[in-house]
Nucleic acid binder design. Structure first.
Lengths: 353, 353
DNA sequence: CTGTAACACTTAACCGATCAAGCTATCGGT
DNA sequence: ACCGATAGCTTGATCGGTTAAGTGTTACAG
């Protein structure tokens, strides 16, 4: 187009960023005094502090984050890596909900969130190493914890503060935050049993993920303890396609389940669609429970009964934990409550009961 | 792997990041030489360069991004602000698709993406000012362009490189990227007419957004030119709730439309659900076309006919443009092709024709 | 044999903060 | 009147890169 970033020769139209030196000059004090004043440190009088703060306001000063990070202070940024293919990420509401929650806390303290989409957990460790080496982030959020997760030793080695979401698991020094998946699935199964269901199936998430295992174990156990012999979990991958396929496989059985619990809402919606396509009425012939209650669940017809939890609040909590860990405060592992059942139109007593 | 970054005086448990000074010492050259070598600048012999690169590899060196940014080089980061409430963001597949596309290009050149969720466009300009002042990003992506968008003059004033997505509009110096919405909606209307529809309505996105206006104008014009008198657009806000409400309002009319075009997939799914709830069959009584073809569209029953475009590719293109603009290369505004119609089960000739 | 240009480096200033250490004026205590 | 102690500053080193300017060596033309 036209002239841009014209620099070098002569008049230098370049926009100048105000620095503490500019403030110092205008206030008639030294750079150091300005630094103390703006950071609320002792060492300047209240009168001077106010004068300096006023000038900073007036000229629209923002501390150069690079300079700040370089002088040993924090980078005021945290990182999140997402290890899912684009086609899942785009539709999976969980991560965006989580991110919104992070931002609530981060924005309030003007921390930046750095995002990176990667292909494999190995790539994630590379990103962590790079971020650490570049001093780009002060800490990271870790999602999708796996058994013997290769990311954990790397983060411990780098001593990079982290909050691990999706456990509980073995994370050494790292803070964890998880939700009580066992309790939630127990509530769902009890509810379906109370409605009269005896053949309950589950379409699970990625089998490698630790919280999937937790859910599978809890599901198997609660079903066994309640005398449901054939409580089957079909592994899946959170995509609608796979969720639909898994549903079809379950429904072509002679002894097909009368209720299915899905590990996320996308698969539940896909399952609903498969049931309808096969001429089964929901909830008449099949009851459906979705895990995680996004707007998607209330959007379809019938609206889906869901295990609801406030994902944004979950994310906000994780962000507070991470910021505390970065500040060096002691942070304890926390279980962030149980998802509660929100009954909607997709669950009812089975027709044959 | 191997031992890395274990150094220091024995007890000092703190992990030390390798710097160019470490490399310089081991290679027996100066810091400057290392800098030249690693950045592919002239000033060192090929032999020395290779030795230095090898050492950097070996000790796992990553340049400190703060130091780099401070010495005038780029921050190697770009920013994206999202100005939608959490409940929309979480389910709207567009942004995650776009982000995935950004990342394809950014990751390849190890640029970081900094994300910030904000409440209002005013907040966005504040974030831009802060990022600029902090030198946190080298450029930004701007989405949801509005008429007389207050963000544009701010970015021009700051001379912050930017790519504006969602025009075309008046953006001054800033590069733009948009898709041919008029062409797409024309194709959709023509298709529905060919099927025999005469009463076609549209549930639009946020009316303030420039691309919504483009679509509305094109929709009105093409309908007029084809002799469809009552082509009504109901404004909405991209949420499922509003999309459902708008659909209900359209369908309770005596002269209800036989086909509805929705400005995003979430509203289309909600519309489908409302039609089913009202006892109308899709596509028998009502045909539905969704704009933007996320997996959501193939997930529901019947699957939705959609205006498809490759959003990730769109994002990747935008990222390339932004990186070029940051590099100071001349960048031209680009129209990134027309969404094409993907017919699925939600469209058919109207029953009464 | 000299002048100079090219090469392969080194040196040191610089970016914009932070922060330990140093300096000065003031004040209370004796 | 003199001695700390303290408040309220200034000074200057520092973080880890980048880069302009300087230095020493070699090659080669004249």
């Amino acid at each position: 187009m036209e002239v841009r970033a014209r620099r070098g020769t002569g008049k230098a139209r370049r926009v100048k960023r105000p620095t503490i030196a500019d403030i110092a000059r205008r206030a008639g004090v030294s750079k150091g005094a300005v630094s103390y004043a703006l950071n609320g440190q002792p060492g300047v009088s209240e009168a001077t502090r106010q004068r300096i703060v006023a000038i900073a306001q007036e000229i629209g000063f923002n501390p150069n984050s690079a300079a700040r990070a370089l002088s040993g202070a924090s980078a005021r940024a945290v990182g999140l890596t997402l290890c899912r293919p684009a086609r899942i990420l785009s539709i999976e509401p969980f991560f965006m909900g989580l991110i919104s929650g992070f931002e609530q806390e981060l924005a309030a303290r003007s921390y930046a969130l750095t995002l990176q989409v990667v292909a494999t957990p190995e790539n994630e460790t590379e990103v962590y190493r790079r971020w650490w080496g570049e001093r780009r982030v002060d800490g990271v959020f870790v999602t999708d914890l796996r058994e013997n997760d290769i990311r954990i030793p790397v983060l411990n080695e780098l001593q990079l503060p982290a909050v691990v979401i999706g456990g509980p698991g073995d994370t050494g020094r790292l803070t964890q935050l998880w939700s009580d998946d066992a309790g939630a699935i127990t509530e769902a199964v009890r509810y379906l049993m109370a409605l009269g269901h005896r053949r309950i199936a589950r379409v699970g998430g990625l089998p490698d993920l630790l919280h999937t295992r937790t859910r599978t174990k809890a599901f198997t156990e609660v079903c066994a303890s309640l005398g449901l012999s054939e409580a089957v979990t079909v592994p899946s991958d959170y995509t609608g396609e796979e969720g639909g396929r898994a549903t079809r496989r379950l429904l072509i059985n002679a002894e097909r389940p009368t209720a299915i619990i899905y590990d996320n809402d996308v698969m539940a919606v896909a399952g609903l669609s498969v049931a309808q396509e096969m001429g089964l009425s929901v909830p008449g012939d099949l009851s459906i429970v979705a895990w995680d209650d996004s707007p998607l669940c209330s959007l379809v017809h019938p609206p889906l009964t869901a295990l609801s939890r406030d994902i944004a609040a979950y994310g906000a909590h994780a962000a507070r934990q991470l910021l505390a860990a970065i500040a060096g405060e002691p942070v304890k592992d926390v279980e962030e409550g149980t998802a509660h059942l929100t009954p909607r139109g997709s669950t009812a007593p089975p027709r044959d009961s």
